[in-house]
Simulated assay, not measured.
Amino acid sequence: MQHIVSGYRGMSLLFDLNWDRIMYIGTIALGLLAGGFVGSFLGSF
């Protein structure tokens, strides 16, 4: 049980330190998906 708690604490600390980087990568991925979606409509005209 102690290993699970310490692992959760470690993951929580890593997420707290790197949440902005995770959001940055997610924003880029969302932008690429949105661009591909719009581009598929524009390519059909």
Results as ranks from 00 to 15, higher is better:
residue 45 F to E: 11
residue 36 G to E: 00
residue 17 L to Y: 10
residue 25 I to A: 15
residue 2 Q to D: 12
residue 36 G to I: 10
residue 37 F to T: 15
residue 19 W to V: 14
residue 45 F to G: 12
residue 26 G to M: 13
residue 11 M to P: 00
residue 37 F to H: 09
residue 22 I to N: 03
residue 35 G to Q: 01
residue 4 I to G: 01
residue 31 G to Y: 01
residue 10 G to I: 00
residue 11 M to C: 06
residue 5 V to Q: 15
residue 39 G to M: 05
residue 24 Y to C: 11
residue 9 R to T: 14
residue 19 W to C: 10
residue 9 R to E: 14
residue 42 L to R: 12
residue 26 G to W: 08
residue 32 L to C: 05
residue 5 V to Y: 15
residue 39 G to I: 00
residue 8 Y to L: 08
residue 25 I to W: 12
residue 3 H to G: 02
residue 27 T to R: 11
residue 40 S to I: 07
residue 30 L to P: 00
residue 35 G to V: 04
residue 32 L to H: 06
residue 29 A to I: 10
residue 24 Y to F: 12
residue 27 T to Y: 08
residue 34 A to K: 14
residue 8 Y to T: 05
residue 41 F to I: 14
residue 7 G to R: 15
residue 12 S to F: 13
residue 21 R to V: 03
residue 10 G to R: 06
residue 31 G to M: 00
residue 33 L to S: 04
residue 36 G to C: 04
residue 20 D to L: 15
residue 37 F to I: 15
residue 26 G to A: 10
residue 40 S to K: 08
residue 34 A to H: 09
residue 18 N to E: 07
residue 4 I to E: 00
residue 26 G to E: 12
residue 26 G to I: 06
residue 33 L to V: 15
residue 30 L to Y: 05
residue 40 S to E: 01
residue 40 S to C: 02
residue 21 R to G: 00
residue 10 G to C: 06
residue 39 G to R: 03
residue 19 W to Y: 15
residue 11 M to T: 00
residue 45 F to M: 13
residue 11 M to R: 07
residue 41 F to W: 09
residue 18 N to A: 03
residue 30 L to I: 10
residue 22 I to K: 01
residue 39 G to T: 03
residue 31 G to V: 02
residue 11 M to Y: 09
residue 6 S to W: 03
residue 8 Y to P: 02
residue 11 M to L: 15
residue 38 V to T: 02
residue 29 A to Q: 03
residue 29 A to Y: 00
residue 10 G to M: 10
residue 35 G to P: 00
residue 21 R to Q: 05
residue 18 N to F: 14
residue 30 L to F: 11
residue 39 G to N: 05
residue 14 L to V: 05
residue 25 I to N: 10
residue 33 L to A: 07
residue 20 D to K: 13
residue 45 F to I: 14
residue 7 G to F: 08
residue 39 G to Q: 02
residue 43 G to V: 11
residue 20 D to I: 06
residue 4 I to W: 02
residue 11 M to E: 03
residue 16 D to G: 06
residue 1 M to E: 11
residue 17 L to T: 12
residue 17 L to P: 04
residue 10 G to F: 04
residue 7 G to Q: 12
residue 24 Y to A: 14
residue 36 G to Y: 03
residue 16 D to I: 06
residue 36 G to P: 01
residue 14 L to T: 07
residue 33 L to D: 08
residue 5 V to L: 15
residue 16 D to P: 03
residue 5 V to C: 09
residue 27 T to A: 07
residue 39 G to P: 02
residue 41 F to G: 00
residue 16 D to C: 02
residue 7 G to A: 14
residue 28 I to D: 06
residue 13 L to P: 01
residue 17 L to S: 08
residue 36 G to Q: 04
residue 34 A to W: 15
residue 44 S to F: 11
residue 25 I to L: 14
residue 12 S to N: 09
